[in-house]
Amino acid sequence: MSLLNVRDLVYTYSLGSPLEHTAVDSVSFTIKKGEFIGIIGHTGSGKSTLVQMLNGLLKPTSGTIELDGVNIWAKPKEIRRIRFQVGLVFQYPEYQLFEDTVAKDIAFGPTNMGLDSEEIENRVYRSAEFVGLKRELLEKSPFDLSGGEKRRAAIAGVIAMDPDILILDEPCAGLDPVGRDILLSQIYHYHRERGNTVILVSHSMEDVASVCDRVMVMNRARLEMFDTSQNIFSRGEELREIGLRVPQITSIVDNLIEAGVPLSKGVLTVDKAVLDITEYLKKEGRL
């Protein structure tokens, strides 16, 4: 069943002025329920504009977005409901924290949804658990947390709305490598446990390759490719042409293949590469 159906989406900034600039140009795609989608692309390729249209923050210049078969702009007055259904975590979301305790800040979204206080409390605890925030932090001021904890608190604030689709715009930007891995695996577990659809916008090919089922490649406002991660990252040459690259491990394996080692293309994780290479070595009798 298709959950999100996007047709011929166009967004133009400053329409009709000399600064007119099309950020998203005739983009169409369909996303099924429960998929983990990655969006990669250069800075300024239209990724952020695209995701802001998906939750109704920006109104498309033309084209339609259907959520569960209903055009999200059919009733403009009820666009707020769409924003609860499609949760968007912005880049550097820690700068949006404002309440005096972390718990109250996480509760901001659910409170706006008009839920009762028991349900809100439940959701605060559950979403804090998902992002790995300890209980004792919930009563602290968000401004006393470390950078990584603030980021988690902000993400929890969106997860607490229990959206059907969770969109994260560069959730790992500016975190240290260990923090990145932990956050990413928490997002992955959230996706697994709830069966929700997640869209991850990222600059890091490694991140996208390790968690996403399918990947969109944006280039100059257009949707250049949309396929499974394995297929996308087997097209290293094309990616390089538009200024992207493949994950390091994929390019190592690609080089090995070029050097004559019979491995399969499109390896996305180090674990898989280790498995393939040991198998090959065993077959050769070198191990």
Binding site: L57, R83, L88, Y95, Q96, N112, V158
Partner: peptide, 13 residues
């Protein structure tokens, strides 16, 4: 603009 968009995404009216 950015903060407004972020809070609107959390349902701020």
């Amino acid at each position: 603009d950015k903060i407004m968009a972020a809070q609107k995404a959390r349902g701020a009216d």
